[in-house]
Nucleic acid binder design. Structure first.
Lengths: 116, 116
DNA sequence: TCGACAGTTCATCATTCGTTCAACTGATGG
DNA sequence: CCATCAGTTGAACGAATGATGAACTGTCGA
């Protein structure tokens, strides 16, 4: 290979770029996770779930939004596998998918708190 | 206070809800952070910045997008204070705002990688 | 089996978002 | 001072998103 080939057409010092290749589907997936959490309504749900499972009605009550609205939000969170679902009689309980997700949410919330 | 007052109108066991109150502006802020990171184009930039500062032209070259497009993306990332800006002669160098942001990005990228 | 309750899905509609081109600012070098 | 390189900003436009009411599914108690 020719190591004199510049990747780009301008003239300054180049940082020794060394990102281990980022697969496109990983990029998409990670962005999708952020996007799912990036809505106040959905993030509020994730926050509620930090302290344990909740059923849809409870989540609706706590946010003051309609059942349908909350259900749609949960659908998106579930599509990105941020939450799990469990049926118990008439109720369906949602919870955070894993501790990794919980950490991500706590982390951003903390960052947002200590940041004026 | 009356501890017999139920918050909601339905009939099952209630989880002992104990979220320390989540201030609305904290919710908004955290959601805004996630939202800013929740676009593949912007997340790619954040990923590039994980290994140090880059100028706008380099970021444009690495993604294959136009200068204007990249500049717009950086504007959003900067509005959410995820990146910092530094002028050096003709070039403007961007970098991650702090280690906390770096950790958030690494964390989501890792999660996305180990998740098929 | 019927009715009520818990949730989901569907279609619609207004809003927000992301990209792009063109015009602009600002620093550097001749 | 002027040309050029580096980057920003603004407007326009199509695509994606989020909320909502109505209709639907599924479970339980009487």
């Amino acid at each position: 290979m020719d190591d004199e080939t510049p990747d780009c057409g301008h003239d300054h010092d180049h940082p020794r770029v060394a990102h281990e290749a980022l697969a496109p589907h990983v990029l998409e997936r990670a962005a999708a996770i952020f996007r799912a959490a990036g809505d106040p309504g959905r993030l509020r749900i994730l926050h509620c779930l930090l302290c344990g499972e909740h059923c849809v009605s409870d989540l609706a009550d706590e946010s003051g939004d309609g059942l349908s609205t909350v259900s749609q939000r949960l659908k998106i969170l579930r599509a990105e596998r941020l939450v799990t679902r469990r049926r118990d009689g008439k109720h369906i309980f949602y919870g955070l998918a894993d501790e990794h997700v919980a950490e991500l949410v706590r982390s951003a919330l903390d960052h947002a708190r200590h940041d004026h």
